[in-house]
Every structure is written in C-alpha cells, then in structure tokens.
Computed example of a mutant assay.
Amino acid sequence: MLNRRDMLLGGAAAALAGSTAGAVAQIVATATQGERAITVLSDGAFEMPQSMLARDVALDAIAQATKVSGPTTNVLNVTCFRQGDQVIVFDCGSGSNFLPGTGKLAASLEAAGISPDSVTHVLFTHLHPDHFWGALDDFDTPLFPKARWHADRREVAFWTDAKVYEKLPEDRHAFAAGAQRIVKALGETLELHDAGSEWIPGVAAFDTAGHTPGHVSFELKDAGGPVFVLGDALTHNIASFAHPEWRPASDHDADLAVATRRRLLDRAETEKAQVIGYHLEGGIGRVERSGNAYRFATGS
C-alpha cells in the first residue's frame, strides 16, 4: 500500500508539503440550477512554495502579482451535483495518504448531509493524487460503494502504461503507482470515456489537456447558463487568470497547458459561465476581463 512516507520521498512532493495548512471540513459554496443543486465541499488544504506557480518567473514577481510572499495555500474543492435521483461527485479528494491538512472529504460529506451510499457517479478530471487517491477509504475499499466511476480514456491509458515511469521524473513515480493501484481496485466499475461527449445525461466532458495528458473539465448545461467544473485547468485565483502564460511546475505539458488556459478563459468569459476550480478559493465564480487578461470574480 502506498503511504504518505512513500509520497514524501519524491522531491516534488516534499516541496509541495511545506507546512501544514489548517483547513477544516466544510461546505465551501452552494448554487442551484433549477431543481438541481451544487455543493462544493472541502477536502482540506496544503501549502506549497510560490515557485511552483510559475517556472522561470522570479519569486519577487510572483509575490507582487499574487500579493502574497512565502508559501501559497492550495485548497481542495470537491464538487457534488444532485439532479433527480442522481448524486454526482467530481473528483474525490486525496484520502489519508497524501499530505497533512488534506483528506477531509468524508467529514465534509457528513457535514453536508450527503451519505457515501447515496453517490451514484464519480467523474474524474484527472488522476493526480489529490483528486484520485480518495477513491478508496482506509480499508482500500471504494469510498462510494454504490457509485459508477468515470474517467478519460487517455488519462487512464497514460497512468497505467507499463512504460509510464520512463515518461515521468522520479519524483512523480509515486503518482503513477497510486493511480495504478486504485484503477485496479475499482476494476470494472471504472468506465472509460472520450472527451467531447456526455459521460452521463446532462454532464459533458470537454478536453482541457496539458496539466495531465488526459485532463478533462465538465459542463453542466442549464437555461441560466453553463457551469464548468474545471479540475486543475485553472489552479490559482490570481495567477491562472492574470498570467495564463505562466507555466506551473505541476503541469505535465506546460505549453499545451498555457494554450488550454487561454482558450478556456476566453470561452468561460464569452459564455458567462459559472466556474468551479478544484484549487480556487471561494469555489464558485466567474471569469471577467481585466485589461489584457482576466480575473476570478466570486459572489456573483
């Protein structure tokens, strides 16, 4: 079983750990779409060095842009969408084997009155540890015992490829080992799909690759306007919007991720979509133009 010690052996993971962020189980935000309800739940948070927000950008420039010096707090937001008799969860947190301050989804579900047994579908944006490792509980059984699990075909193929370790730096090998273990445990309950289609009725996946090879985001269509569940296509309240050209250290294909961010920001602003980012503080907001770039506006 991959444990937290294994995770921290990797240099990148050690850098991510920083000091423990003290997020508590909570409901981050709520919204309604007619008779459908959205609840954004906290899986906790961790701190990471600001240098991870942008490769090849001076720390003083990052601090000036983000208005924060020192480590940056990375919140983990899990989206729950209820329509009819379906309870749909997007990503499922990090579980107990990732980093201090994370793994709080089960407590947040309880606070929101959502029983794990009631969850019918889990849709993954990608298979990084803080999105995927929470699929199994402390007994290595599925956290949502009655759910069907859904992931992008390219994403699963990448992480389960026998040669994946040759494609990754050594400090990401634990990511692949964890993904392979969980894919195997989910077995036939894990359904594979392609981007550009509805994975379940009313929820369509669209391609936002770059952060990982098969990263997808989801669109919830409604007469009041679309809602985008973005995963890690946008990861910071300021940097991802004001500086989409920055290249975060966590992006697998930095150039593709830049192109994806630019396209996504333009689309979200043009369509006046509500957006939910896994690492965006405040959970739900909108993309607004700000000079030659954008900003994340919450509370509207």
Rank of each mutant, 00 (worst) to 15 (best):
M1F: 12
M1K: 14
A12D: 14
G18M: 12
A21T: 01
G22H: 01
A23H: 05
I27C: 07
I27F: 08
V40Q: 08
F46C: 06
S51I: 07
L53V: 03
I62Y: 07
A63P: 06
N74T: 01
L76M: 10
L76Q: 03
V78I: 15
V78F: 10
T79G: 08
F81E: 02
G84R: 08
Q86I: 02
I88F: 12
S96L: 14
S96R: 12
F98M: 12
L99K: 07
A107N: 06
A111S: 09
A112G: 00
S115L: 14
V119H: 02
H121K: 14
P129T: 07
A135K: 08
F139Y: 14
A151G: 11
F158P: 02
F158Q: 02
A162F: 13
V164A: 12
V164I: 13
E166G: 10
P169E: 11
E170G: 04
H173P: 09
R181L: 15
E188T: 03
T189C: 15
L192R: 11
A195W: 06
P201H: 05
G202W: 07
F206I: 07
G210W: 06
H211F: 14
H215I: 15
S217K: 03
D222A: 03
V227K: 03
V229D: 11
L230C: 07
G231K: 08
H243D: 02
E245I: 09
H252Q: 13
D255E: 13
L264T: 02
E269R: 01
E269G: 00
K272G: 11
G277K: 10
G277W: 10
H279Y: 07
G285T: 02
E288H: 03
G291D: 05
A293N: 03
Y294H: 01
R295C: 06
